[in-house]
Design a protein around this nucleic acid. Structure first.
Length: 512
RNA sequence: GCCCCCUUCGUCUAGUGGCCCAGGACAUCUGGUUCUCAGCCAGAAGAUCACCGGUUCGAAUCCGGUAGGGGGUACCA
């Protein structure tokens, strides 16, 4: 009789409301590599959302077992990135908690205790087979086109013998994989996944010298920190088989597992990597911050990458996402990062952001660009407020304030080559002279009066609509920007007159 | 090689046997608004649901196989 294939529960079949009744504890366990990968951040977000959805705890653990160098700096990156995105953790290296320590490297005693328990109960055995011998066996199996399934010679040792031998030799330890059995994982995203234990060799859980290996450490930590839902990247799916066997060997209750697909590079199915990202694609979280993305926008965008609320909702507040998040609506196929859509989502959030908050967030970008003082003077603040208002929807990223603000904030006029092209057109010089004369005495120097005055000059000179181009190019040095009359008003009479003069000199210099 | 996972418009997705000759969004294209840009409004185009076979009155949805992509096969994490 063929085993009934277990299907995923229908979407939304309960977990959205009451399926998970017990306490939920999730974790994010990054390695301190020096940056937060955007795909890893999404995994962190899903864990965080699940915990918040069910009023549970989100734990930050640092999987630092093989990185001794520069951990401090990498740690700072992790903390700062998570905090910036608003993914707060209830237990972790810096805040502590009842199940610490939260550095994997500091849990070695727990791992060794688990190894000892497995040895003692006859679930594992010390193995002295050398790596060179193993390599030969592997090669031989490959040559014979047989799968390589290794079982060590000490496999049938008694628990006490095994323990004694290991204490004496501190050699590698292998898990004694039971034979003829099938392991079934009920993955919250993928449904039932089965493995036959006969396909799995006796994997090592400690290397020669006694150092615990990842598969052992990972599941032991999850068990001991009382993690209820292990939500992690799909590359760990294969690791789950040995981890399940270890948990079973330890007699420990199992967490629920959910394997989320990897994040692919835009337009493809290739995994997004930091090593060779496609041009213009940002992989590290900090790049998004530096580019001027809003944390709320990024949360929304990342949530939509592999998860959906329904068949039409794209823009959702953090609260809405929390209230509706469930693993059964996470896709099982990899999702390519879509920079265009992220940008669009960012646009939606920027548009909705109140002006004063936007200004507050944009100011540091101007400070870093050297366009305002640190701290900005009251005058500069006032100008920036005017710029923001005039720019309106044109500000998509916080950093856009640099692009649009420079023409108002810098002292000297800088004329873009495209703007210069306008100024070289016949009649420009003459019109500018007229405008200069008009502006010099214009009272009051405000939007309505400026506009009316420019209209008069246009009719007087008969240049038509081109006058706006001349005006924009000569006063801002740009061809794009906010409405030209807004620009004039923001610049103020003094600067407008000065800039027009500068522009005329340039024109004359080129002509002469 | 062997094991496991994945496969719906260019992209993110909806879809769990009839409501789907497949819906939404981004991107694209066209028209309108406009001093530029960005917007905004209106519209268009875009998917033989990877492929082949089966079950069924009926399949994107269930079953089998094939192909392609990904992960694992470490005394890495």
């Amino acid at each position: 009789m063929a085993p009934q294939k277990v299907r995923r529960a229908p979407r939304g079949a309960g977990s959205r409301s009451t399926r998970i009744a017990m306490e939920v504890r999730t974790r994010f366990a990054p390695s301190p590599t020096g940056y937060l990968h955007i795909g890893g951040v999404r995994t962190a977000l899903f864990n965080w959302l699940l915990a918040r959805r069910h009023g549970g705890q989100f734990i930050l653990r640092i999987d630092d077992t093989d990185t001794a160098r520069h951990v401090d700096d990498a740690l700072t990156k992790i903390f700062e990135g998570m905090r910036w995105l608003g993914l707060d953790w209830d237990e972790g290296p810096d805040v502590g908690g009842a199940h610490g320590p939260y550095f994997q490297s500091q849990r070695t005693d727990n791992h060794v205790a688990a190894i000892t328990q497995l040895l003692e109960s006859g679930k594992a055995y010390p193995c002295e087979t050398s790596t060179t011998e193993l390599d030969e066996l592997r090669e031989a199996a490959k040559a014979a086109k047989r799968p390589f399934v290794f079982r060590g010679p000490n496999r049938d040792m008694s628990g006490s013998e095994a323990l004694a031998l290991w204490k004496e030799k501190q050699c590698a330890v292998r898990f004694k994989v039971p034979q003829g059995k099938t392991t079934v994982l009920l993955d919250a995203i993928r449904g039932a996944v089965e493995w036959r234990t006969d396909m799995l060799g006796d994997f090592t859980i400690a290397r020669d010298g006694g150092k615990p290996l990842y598969n052992l450490a990972s599941i032991v930590d999850d068990i001991e920190t009382k993690i209820t839902h292990v939500v992690r990247a799909e590359e760990h799916l294969s690791n789950t088989h040995p981890q399940l066997l270890i948990a079973e060997g330890l007699g420990a209750p199992l967490p629920t597992f959910a394997h989320v697909p990897y994040v692919a590079a835009p337009g493809g199915k290739k995994k997004l990597s930091k090593r060779n990202p496609p041009p213009g694609v940002m992989v590290a979280l900090e790049e998004y911050e530096q580019a001027g993305y809003l944390p709320e926008a990024l949360v929304n965008a990342l949530a939509r990458l592999g998860w959906s609320l329904d068949d039409h909702t794209e823009i959702m507040s953090r609260q809405t996402i929390i209230e509706n998040f469930s693993l059964d609506r996470v896709t099982s196929a990899p999702a390519g990062l879509d920079p265009d859509k992220m940008y669009w989502i960012q646009d939606q959030y920027m548009t909705a952001l109140p002006a004063d908050e936007k200004i507050e967030l944009m100011m540091p970008f101007l400070v870093r660009a050297g366009l305002v003082a640190d701290p900005p003077t009251p005058e500069q603040k006032a100008v920036v407020a005017k710029i923001e208002k005039a720019c309106g929807d044109r500000l998509k990223l916080l950093s856009d304030i640099i692009r649009y603000g420079a023409m108002f904030l810098r002292e000297e006029l800088v004329i873009d080559p495209k703007a210069m092209k306008h100024l070289r057109k016949p009649g420009a010089e003459e019109v500018l002279a007229k405008l200069h004369a008009t502006f010099a005495t214009l009272e009051p120097f405000d939007l309505a009066t400026i506009e009316a005055a420019v209209n008069d000059v246009r009719e007087e000179t008969g240049v038509g609509g081109k006058i706006n181009h001349f005006l924009r190019a000569s006063t801002t040095g740009e061809t794009v920007g906010p409405g030209v009359f807004d620009c004039i008003e923001i610049l103020g009479r003094e600067k407008v007159l000065k800039n027009i003069e500068t522009a005329r000199e340039k024109i004359a210099a080129e002509a002469g």
